Computed example of a mutant assay.
Amino acid sequence: MLFIVLVTLNAPLSMFYTEALGMKLLRQRDVPEEKYANAFVGFGDEHSHFAVELTYNYGVTSYDVGDGFGHFAIATQDVYKLVEHIRAKGGNITREAGPVQGGTTVIAFVKDPDGYTFALVQRPIVHDPFCQISLRVGDLERAIKFYEKALGLKVVRKVDNPENKYTIAILGYKEEDDATVLELTYNYGVTEYSKGTAYAQIAIGTDDVYKSADVVNLVTQELGGEITLQPGPIPGLNTKVTSFLDPDGWKTALVDNEDFLKELE
C-alpha cells in the first residue's frame, strides 16, 4: 500500500519526514512532460514496507488539506522520546504525549509543514512504523461495504464512542498490529467533508488492474463512487493503473504489481 499526498517543494518538508520522523528517502523521479516530480519516503524497502509518495506539481506553491483527511499514524515503542526528538527538529506538536482519553495507549499528534497531521502511537512491538491512515466518511456502513467488496479489506476492529459522538472502523488485510490499516471515522450527524486539494490517493497493488477495475465498477454501481481512470498504462511511466472514487469521494489507485516492481529496479 502506498499513500500519495500533494506537497509544496521545500527543505523543511523534506527534513520533517527524514530527520524528524526518521523516514528514509527511498527514491525520486521527475516527469517533466507531465509537469510533476515525486519523492518516495518510508521506513524500509518498498518491497516490504509501506511508503508515502510526496508529489510536487510544477509551479504549485500551496494546497488545502481540507477537513476530511484525518491523519497518518506512526507506531513507536516510545512516544515521549519521539515527541521530544520531533520538537528538537522544530516540529509542530499539536497534542503532547500521554494516554488516550479513557484508555492507556500513549499517543501524540504532530503536523508536517504542509499541515498534514500525524498520530504517534505507542506499541510494544513495531513491524512497520507507518501503521495507519485515517479518513472521515459520511456513512460508515456504506464505506465498510464498499472497501470490503471493492478491495477485499476486512474489518479488524470497530469502536463506537457515544460520549464523543464518533465511531471508527479499522480495515486491513491483516490485524492492525501486523500491517498498515485504513481507519474510517464517522462523526455523528456529519455526512460531508471538504477533501481540499492536498490529499491525493491510496495506491494498492493488484495482479490484474483490468479485472480489478471490473470488480470496482460493479461495486460503484451498487454503493456509489466512480471509476476515474480506466485501466491502462499511465503516460511517462507505462505502469498500468486504474483509479476510482469511493462513495465519499476518496480516491484509490490500483497498480499492477509486476509493473511496480519494474519501477523499483
Rank of each mutant, 00 (worst) to 15 (best):
I86C: 03
R87I: 11
R87C: 08
G91Q: 07
T94M: 06
R95Y: 08
R95P: 00
R95G: 04
G98S: 08
V100P: 00
G103T: 14
I107T: 14
V110L: 01
P113W: 10
Y116W: 08
Y116A: 11
T117N: 02
F118S: 04
Q122D: 04
R123D: 06
P129H: 06
C131F: 05
Q132C: 12
L135Y: 11
G138W: 12
G138S: 11
I144S: 10
Y147E: 03
E148A: 12
E148S: 09
K149H: 11
V156I: 15
R157Q: 14
R157H: 14
P162A: 06
K165L: 14
T167R: 11
I168W: 06
I170L: 15
L171N: 03
G172D: 01
G172S: 07
G172Q: 03
G172V: 11
D177T: 11
D178T: 08
V181M: 07
V181A: 07
L182R: 09
L182E: 02
E183V: 13
L184M: 12
Y186E: 05
Y186K: 13
Y188T: 13
G196W: 03
A200M: 12
Q201M: 13
D207H: 12
Y210D: 13
N217G: 03
L218P: 00
V219Y: 02
Q221I: 04
Q221V: 05
E222K: 05
L223K: 04
G224H: 00
G224A: 03
G225A: 07
I227S: 01
